[in-house]
Design a protein around this nucleic acid. Structure first.
Lengths: 252, 252
DNA sequence: CGGGGAATTGAATACGTTCAAAGGCCGTGG
DNA sequence: CCACGGCCTTTGAACGTATTCAATTCCCCG
């Protein structure tokens, strides 16, 4: 992982594989808007572009004052809560997704965001957004839409993971969730690299890493997936969906 | 349960114990607002007041078009997803809380809402809300605030329940979550009636009803709580918090 | 090629589930 | 008013699954 970072740094910024702006969840907020014949771009004026992060870097800390939303343009993050005994992984953020919105309400971030690998984010200061949104209705609408979708996704994930009883269902549901999210951004959703460690996945799913490891092996042997370290191929989607025990409708 | 309903119906509406409007999550949206010296009340114009529901009645169905938000003024609901093998309980709504917001994004309700007992709700048609909100900034702000809080609470509940590994921690966390929500509305939070069946709780927590029953007994014997059917008293909060295994900060 | 952390595998244990049966509560009917 | 019946809840015992702790292997990086 260290190597990757070094490589990345030595490269020109343009070499980093960023997600296309059109595939970014923040796009509706920072793409140019036509206002009375004039092109207006929040991005040009307010969005800090492509801040680099190294693996392990904190984007924001749990409890810190909420100041900005971020869009991940490359790499990925995990969301964690500190606890007495280590940490609790409460989510992952992939390239193209936004992070930080959940800090809006109590005006502080409810969890920390940590880079899982060399990553880049765009920063959208919240004050700028609200200022501008009150004057530009379409921007406000887009912002609200974004939050509503976020809430919807969270609800779905909650339903997906919370009540799934056995470990295999959880892992299958997790893989399908990842796959779905990759599809949404036009990435290859049947073959990808897991950016997070087995420990992080286990922590997130409420399992032990040993159990998780056995399950990867099991799904591999059943032919549903091919696993080689962090490299995953989803071979038999039907088998996987079956293993997840999820209703069809949640799997589109 | 049937008796309860009958009783309720035979009573005058005024006899039903509604939650005070000031303690309702919808209050910021329907309470009178001062606009240019004129008092304006969304409630008077748009809010349908106190629709009665009987136990088992559906407030809205999963997949139905999203049309309105609701505030529960008395009683309680459960939120469910239909699955191949029965149902999946994804949440509960208590008096004073709102329900339906999660339907905003895909414009349909992601789950069904079913009354657990004789209940009443206020209905706020969404079209009215958005129309008015664009003209009344303070209303818009209040609405957004409400949604943000909702999202925040969901996140917290996710962290509370999802990653708790053992069954006892889940139940303890669940009881503390209920207690916290009752406190928020000024209700007695150390002694209350569970509106839902053991089955519903077990379903929600991803456990079997038998396991749940054993846990109630265990917590009872440890002196943390007193259980008599659906009547619960929280006797030793420290013990409970301990049993939940949650970080202190989530328990305020 | 060798070191070290992450991942996997193995065996014993603990925990939650399952299936079966008994108990308790409440509404109905005698 | 009490007895009956149904349903929800509790209890019991055997079983299956996930955890624990330990040992080994794999793989990345020097």
């Amino acid at each position: 992982m260290q190597k990757k970072i070094t490589t990345d740094r030595n490269r020109k910024a343009s070499k980093t594989e960023h997600i296309a702006c059109e595939n970014c969840d923040l796009f509706p907020l920072c793409n140019p808007i036509d206002i009375g014949g004039r092109e207006f771009s929040l991005a040009d004026e307010f969005v800090e572009r492509r801040t680099p992060l190294q693996a392990g870097d904190y984007l924001f800390q749990e409890g810190a004052e909420f100041t900005a939303l971020y869009a991940v343009t490359s790499g990925s993050l995990k969301l964690i809560n500190r606890t007495e005994d280590g940490e609790l992984v409460v989510g992952f953020v992939l390239a193209g997704e936004t992070v930080g919105q959940t800090g809006i309400y109590p005006k502080q971030y409810p969890c920390s965001a940590v880079a899982l690998e060399s990553s880049h984010v765009c920063e959208l200061p919240y004050a700028n957004l609200t200022d501008t949104a009150t004057q530009v209705p379409v921007l406000l609408a887009n912002f609200q839409q974004m939050l509503h979708k976020e809430n919807f996704d969270l609800h779905r994930q909650f339903a997906m993971l919370m009540a799934r009883k056995n470990a295999e269902q959880r892992l299958a549901a997790f893989l399908l969730n990842l796959s779905m999210r990759l599809t949404e951004r036009g990435a290859n959703s049947s073959e990808f690299q897991l950016p997070m460690s087995r420990d992080d996945i286990a922590n997130f799913l409420g399992l032990r890493k040993e159990t998780l490891s056995r399950l990867f092996t099991k799904l591999h042997q059943s032919g549903a997936i091919a696993v080689r370290g962090k490299h995953i191929r989803l071979l038999d989607m039907n088998e996987l969906k079956n293993a997840s025990g999820l209703p069809q409708r949640n799997l589109s």
